[in-house]
Amino acid sequence: MSSDDFIVDPLRDIEVHEHAKAFRRFLRWENSERVDPLALESVNEIWTVRGKMPFRLDVVSDAELPDDSGLTIYDGACIVVKIPRRIRHKAFMGDGYARYTIAHELGHAVLHIDQLMKGATLPRRRVGNVTPTWIPKFKSAEHQAVVFGGAFLINDDTARGLSSADEVSVQAGVSLTAARIYFEEMQEELARPAVAIRVQKIADEVREILSSNPVPPQTTFLNEVCSCCGQQKLFPVGHKFMCQVCDTVYDRFQDGDEVQ
């Protein structure tokens, strides 16, 4: 069975990223500045999320894959990534799209072994894969392979010292589109400490209010349970809310809440 996309086991982007880095470590390429995906032609075993599996990178005629830039299958004994001769030639010449195509298909090989062993064939369309609107990103085989491809080819330490997606594209030898996806993910990762600081600030503000205005014995609780501990012990503190049981602080609660 072949399709543009499949529903697969849910994975957050950061989890896909870590799987790609684990694959690099398996190949002993973790410190490589510029990965050569064609080196997989001499590899006969790869690491996957289900353990080590036999592997083969096949170069086939352009006529065999006229509409696809790559294809990943399981032939009953081995995971096979097929690339047409035109893609291999371009990857050999350093073309970013071609290099990324191979890494993209490796993402399917590493992440989606369950679907492959059930008969799925995972292609990369020349005109771009179409994902149905009912498949969320974190369950999309194509989205996961897109994230994997960039994480596999790009050295994190080097990329963090670069200032734009264009620089990432040139340094890692990937397409500008792939570099932009990776660069946006990297910026989000770097922003996480700022989010943590904002949450901590909210908690500190609530604790300061509580220290000057302790919770009275007859506390009025919201008609809602705490999403952390499940107890109906949420009470208002200024314009915020706090759980009396687990001390979880909420910046605001959903519209429609009523006080008993």
Rank of each mutant, 00 (worst) to 15 (best):
D157Q: 15
L11M: 15
P217A: 09
V110H: 02
A178W: 02
R25G: 08
R99C: 07
E205A: 14
G150P: 02
F241M: 03
E15I: 11
F221K: 10
H143K: 01
F138W: 12
H108K: 08
T177C: 01
G51K: 06
K21E: 05
L38Q: 04
R56S: 14
V60D: 01
G150R: 01
L27M: 15
V8N: 00
F148Q: 01
L11C: 09
T219Q: 11
Y97M: 09
E18L: 15
N129R: 03
C228W: 06
T133E: 12
V81S: 03
R99I: 14
P123G: 10
Q187L: 13
H143V: 01
L27I: 07
G119T: 10
F152P: 01
R88Y: 11
I209A: 03
A178K: 00
V249C: 10
A91N: 10
D68P: 00
P66M: 03
G96Y: 03
M186Y: 06
R126L: 13
V245F: 12
A63Q: 13
A20Q: 01
Q218W: 07
F26H: 14
G51S: 07
K52V: 13
K90H: 06
A109W: 04
R28G: 02
D13L: 09
H108S: 10
D251H: 06
D166L: 11
V35I: 15
G76L: 15
R28P: 00
D36W: 00
D62W: 11
L111M: 12
A159S: 12
G230E: 01
L222W: 12
I197F: 13
D13T: 11
G230T: 08
A120E: 07
A159K: 04
R198G: 00
A151N: 13
A194Y: 13
R12V: 07
E45W: 09
T72S: 04
E205H: 04
C229F: 09
E258D: 10
E64K: 15
R12C: 10
D67K: 10
E188Q: 13
F253H: 02
I7C: 11
L162Y: 05
D251F: 09
L11Y: 07
Q200P: 00
C229S: 06
L222Y: 11
L111K: 06
A165W: 04
V35Q: 03
R207C: 04
K137R: 14
D251W: 07
A196F: 12
K52C: 06
F6G: 00
G256P: 05
R86K: 14
G150Y: 06
R86W: 10
L11T: 02
I135H: 09
A159L: 06
H89L: 14
